[in-house]
Simulated scan of single mutants.
Amino acid sequence: MNVVFINAFVESINNILVTMASMSCEYQKPYIKQDQQPLGVVTGMIPMAGDNVKGSLAISFSEGAILKISSKMLGEEITSLEDGCTDLTGEITNMLSGGARKILWEKGYDFDMAQPHLLTGTQMIEHEVTGPVMVIPFVTRSGPFFIEAVFASRLNRAKSIV
Rank of each mutant, 00 (worst) to 15 (best):
V3S: 15
V4G: 00
F5G: 03
F5Y: 14
N7Q: 12
F9C: 03
E11I: 12
I13K: 02
I13L: 09
N14Y: 10
N14M: 09
I16D: 03
I16Y: 08
I16V: 06
I16N: 10
L17I: 08
V18E: 13
S22Q: 11
M23F: 07
M23Y: 10
E26Q: 07
E26I: 14
Q28I: 09
K29I: 10
K29A: 01
K33H: 11
Q34D: 11
D35E: 08
P38Y: 01
V41Q: 00
V42R: 05
M45V: 14
I46Q: 14
P47Y: 07
P47W: 08
G50N: 09
G50Q: 08
D51A: 12
N52M: 08
N52V: 13
N52C: 00
V53Y: 09
V53M: 13
V53E: 11
V53S: 08
K54L: 13
S56V: 13
L57I: 15
A58M: 09
A58T: 10
F61W: 05
F61P: 01
S62L: 03
E63Y: 01
A65R: 05
I66M: 05
I66T: 04
L67P: 02
S70I: 01
K72F: 00
M73N: 08
M73E: 07
M73C: 04
L74S: 04
G75I: 10
E76L: 14
E77H: 14
S80D: 12
S80Q: 14
E82Y: 13
E82P: 06
D83H: 13
T86K: 15
D87L: 05
D87Q: 12
D87S: 15
D87E: 15
L88F: 08
L88N: 12
T89F: 07
G90M: 04
E91C: 02
I92Q: 04
T93G: 06
T93K: 10
S97R: 07
S97L: 08
G98N: 12
R101I: 11
K102W: 13
K102M: 09
L104D: 04
W105Y: 11
E106I: 09
E106P: 08
E106V: 10
E106A: 14
Y109D: 06
F111K: 14
F111D: 07
P116A: 14
H117I: 12
T122K: 15
Q123I: 10
I125V: 15
I125D: 02
E126H: 14
E128S: 06
V129T: 14
T130P: 00
T130Q: 15
P132W: 10
V133G: 04
M134G: 01
V135H: 02
V135F: 00
I136T: 02
P137V: 06
F138A: 04
T140H: 09
T140P: 05
R141E: 15
R141G: 07
P144S: 10
P144L: 11
P144M: 06
F146C: 03
F146H: 02
F146N: 02
F146Q: 01
A149R: 03
A149G: 08
V150L: 05
F151Y: 13
F151S: 03
A152P: 05
A152Y: 02
A152T: 05
S153Q: 11
R154H: 11
N156Q: 08
A158I: 06
S160H: 09
I161K: 04
V162C: 01
V162H: 05
